[in-house]
Amino acid sequence: MTATPEVAPAPDLSHYSDYADLAAEIHRLKAVPLAWVRSSLKVPFANFGDALSPVVATALSRLPVAHRAFDGRNLRLAAVGTIGQNQRNGTVHVWGTGFDAAHGRMAESGRYVAPPDTQFVIHAVRGPNSRRTLLQAGLHAPAVYGDPGWVLPRIFPRILPQGEATPGTELGVIPHISELATPQPEPLMRVGLARYEGGTEEGVRIIPTYHEPSMAGFRGKLDEILGCRRIASTSFHGLILADAYGIPCALLSGSLPPGPHIIPLPESAGLLDHRVADFYLGTGRRNLLVYGQPTGQPTDWAALIRAIDRHYQPFAHDHAALLEAFPVRPAIDPTAARWPLPADFEQLLRW
């Protein structure tokens, strides 16, 4: 008699979600449906800030992620990045996402208008400006704020290479991807951006956020950042990750007069990049260090380093509410200082 082959039981995923629709989709896919900007044939590199979405979602859930388009008619989770206004169709669970009304669907009033055939389930947004955009559009949005990228030190703590007492790079400069001549990991800047010239001779490292689409590429980019004693950034995630890891940092601005500025919050939030203002307003931070440097003039790197050393103030904020709002029930203790990663973590990710 032929033995009946043993059928492996389906994995128990009941603890992975508190929301019935998302839970059902996770059960069907055996993965978290996630919308983020991933590498493509057109841009064969991952952008570090965008890649934080699958890294954090997988670290919390220990599930693989299934990539979802911004305009699909399916159910999905949107997390890291200013991507909320680009979502349309289907059901979108929002966790720590930014909404920029200026680049979304606009009404005659100049306000964001939620697209038709789209249901938003808002768990948390990046900050109060994103929440205001949603409230003005008639959408329910709780006052839960934060960027999931802030938790990266719990996943990858800052550990210097063996034998090194201090980071080797005096100043890391992280440009926004719009300042690159082409989307690539090499620091080839657009013509006319003289402020990035001449840094390598003075212990300065220009660190674009693009990297090879792999775990090794992601970790290599993170190690570049963590190998710096100070950070100056026009990249939003370059700035907040430096802050999260306790690396003295400054926002680099081309619109403010040259030199250091201590920008009070919330009074002068309008002087900041909208993403930066949105996030830090939600954290309760009272001021932010900004260094004015015209884009067309060479930077006095020594003066920038002195400004950071003199004016940077370490900052930490309580992001417990953000973690509690994660709509996929975590498979680890999110309050732990360190999140242990499964052996197959790299295989669970998509780039």
Rank of each mutant, 00 (worst) to 15 (best):
T2C: 00
A3S: 10
L13H: 10
H15K: 14
D18Y: 06
L22Y: 01
L22P: 02
I26W: 00
A31K: 06
V37P: 01
L41C: 00
L41R: 02
A46W: 06
N47G: 02
F48G: 05
F48K: 04
F48Q: 03
P54Q: 06
T58M: 11
F70Y: 06
D71K: 09
G72P: 03
L75K: 02
L75Y: 01
A78N: 04
V80D: 01
V92G: 01
G104H: 09
M106V: 15
G110K: 12
P115W: 04
T118Q: 05
Q119L: 08
F120V: 05
A124C: 10
R126T: 08
S130A: 08
L135E: 09
A137V: 09
H140W: 03
P142D: 03
P142F: 01
D147R: 12
R158A: 06
P161R: 01
T166Y: 04
V173L: 14
S178F: 14
Q184G: 11
L193N: 12
Y210Q: 08
E212R: 11
G217W: 08
D223H: 11
E224Q: 15
L226G: 08
A232V: 15
S233W: 08
F236A: 07
H237D: 05
G238A: 10
L239T: 12
G246A: 07
I247M: 12
L251N: 12
L251F: 13
P258L: 07
P258W: 03
H261M: 05
L265C: 00
G270E: 01
L271Q: 00
D273A: 01
R275W: 02
V276E: 03
F279I: 00
Y280I: 02
T283E: 00
T295N: 08
P298M: 10
D300H: 10
A303F: 01
A303Y: 03
L304V: 11
I305L: 03
I308Y: 04
Y312C: 06
P314F: 10
F315K: 09
L323W: 11
F326L: 11
A331Q: 15
A331S: 15
A331I: 15
I332Y: 15
L349H: 07
L349C: 13
